[in-house]
Design a protein around this nucleic acid. Structure first.
Lengths: 348, 348
DNA sequence: TTGTATGCGTTATCAT
DNA sequence: ATGATAACGCATACAA
């Protein structure tokens, strides 16, 4: 049961033309008489013919798929809720253009570069999305050499022939610092991501600049973005000689872990310590106190990245797209600076 | 620069045989003289020939890819940290067998069934992994009709021709309930996932059975697995006439949200209320109090699911695989039942 | 044991 | 301007 689906040869035979002409008619290419084209399309329609994606892939050299590689060293990042919304955004775009997203993860037996090489060697994808850009990121040269189209999330710090889609993370961090400054905080800290990651670095620099500009004393601690390292950084900051009255975290998970550490230390948030996160995750709204956080539209980011990559695959010139600035959502975890820290006075 | 890669025809010519024989030699098929085979393989090796995956896909009818569809209605689940480890496990297996994981998400413009249909129509995948099984899950019949191989996570409640890989969620829940019973709790609650999802239902039933078996009074509240609904369920339970002294949550996110609600209500955890989670996420270790939680090995689950699916694609008979039981990790969020609730006595 | 023909859609090349 | 033909790359049923 179930006869084989019709092929282009069946259509050609029934329409009394050659295979090539059917292909031309289907793809709206010139050189086909309009009445012939109409007849071919009619026959194809009534036979229910659809071109085989595989045969198309073979003859065109494209795969109609794009790749997203999750690096082993960055799998803490991959655990970031950001990715879910981002992928949903990619699918918003891909689902209407017949593309497919191939997810590849570096594994214990296959390093990041090998993963890209494997995708390219088998021509499994037409292009890749590069997330979590690093300083002097080697992947840019790598994908060049592999002949893959690419789009980067954020602007690389090295020469790039590829399109980029970026969000000004720094603007979100600066908004957080200004918010704290207005609340009277004079000594603020930043629990940063790895400085080798461009977006983590951008946040760190924005933090330092804005703090300096507002006349605040600032300190930064570098982490790997994990809840564990966020907790450890918080211990360090709180246990120091001159603890800050506010901590700006580079993601919500670390901020939530920081809330835990503060509680353990007997500090009240926000009475003794103010805390801000980044990503504005759902969970941040339901912890106590709820989390003041910087929100970026990850889904839109995914949509635009997908669209931009498809344009690159289609041969369009590289472009640099900049998305809307992130916004700060103020909740309960930030409040006026405690009196003890305000200008050194102790009024109580 | 860059001459085209050698094809099977180049190898055949250089080895002085036909294309078909090269193919036979490469694929270790019988009917090739051993010296001929050796010569062919040697020539192929020195020419650096590798078969084109696309040509192979076209002629074999396989795509060397498997799909994971994230349903729109279940994207709360997709936000579950479980998925990251699970996908990593899949990649552990796929990366050594040259398979690729295609991630497809239902979108506003493409429902779940359409997503499967699209993958099958274009023959983009050889098989799919079905997660979050539902009662009378329509996807089983759907993938049958589409001719896709499949493996289900958990055992379906309807007839299935497919392999399954399952974990006894109930054992984890029962361990949690026993733990609470030993701590003296007499009135326990369960914040369950959607009862239409088999694993959520299994957890709920296990909870009720174990509670009844231990002589505990129990109550269940159904949610959609989101932090928001977990918080709402907690409000309902705490604000009721006879609030429980312990709540067993069906995932960590809801449990963490529940901690927030308890705090807001002025309840101390675990002194006034004990709380358990499910998934044993990293974040659960760093909130305060740290979360007692049920841990499953999601990565191993991914590995076995991938392996089982590949076996099914290879034509092996369906099999039902059962993984190790989940374990309960006890942390700070569970403690002795408060005196007020212990058998109705008030000793204080 | 080995060679040949066929399938699949696109496109460069050729023939009207 | 319109249309036909062959080649692409691999596997495999079939012929020799």
């Amino acid at each position: 049961m179930g006869e084989p689906p019709p092929t282009i040869a069946d259509v050609a035979r029934k329409a009394g033309v050659s295979k090539g002409l059917v292909s031309f008619a289907l793809n709206d290419r010139p050189g086909v008489a309009s009445d012939t084209r109409a007849r071919i399309l009619e026959v194809a329609r009534e036979m229910g013919w659809t071109p085989s994606l595989r045969a198309r892939a073979l003859s065109t050299g494209r795969s109609f798929a794009c790749g997203l590689v999750i690096g082993r060293s960055t799998d803490v990042i991959a655990a970031d809720p950001f990715f879910h919304s981002f992928i949903a955004g990619i699918e918003d775009e891909f689902s209407v253009s017949g593309q497919v997203l191939v997810l590849a993860a570096a594994t214990p037996g296959r390093q990041e570069a090998e993963t890209y090489r494997g995708l390219a060697a088998d021509k499994r994808v037409d292009g890749v999305i590069l997330t979590d850009l690093r300083a002097g990121d080697p992947r840019l040269r790598l994908v060049d050499g592999l002949g893959l189209a690419a789009v980067t999330l954020g602007v690389p710090d090295v020469d790039s022939r590829h399109s980029s889609v970026s969000v000004d993370d720094g603007a979100g961090i600066r908004a957080a610092v200004r918010h704290l400054a207005h609340l009277g905080h004079r000594r603020v800290a930043h629990v940063a991501g790895p400085d080798s990651m461009l977006h983590a670095r951008a946040r760190r620099i924005a933090f330092q600049e804005e703090a300096a500009g507002s006349g605040l004393t600032s300190i930064c601690v570098e982490t790997d973005f994990s809840a564990a390292s966020g907790a450890a950084a918080t211990e360090t900051l709180i246990g120091g000689d001159t603890p800050p009255s506010a901590i700006v975290y580079s993601n919500d998970h670390m901020a939530i872990a920081g809330l835990g550490v503060a509680r353990r230390r007997g500090l009240s948030v926000p009475d003794d310590l103010s805390v801000t996160g980044f990503d504005d995750t759902e969970l941040g709204r339901y912890v106590n106190p709820s989390l003041t956080s910087v929100a970026t539209d990850a889904r839109e980011w995914g949509r635009v990245a997908a669209r931009t990559l498809l344009a690159a695959i289609a041969g369009e010139a590289p472009k640099q797209v900049r998305l809307a600035e992130p916004s700060l959502t103020v909740r309960e975890s930030t409040g006026p600076a405690p009196t003890e820290y305000r200008g050194g006075r102790r009024d109580r």
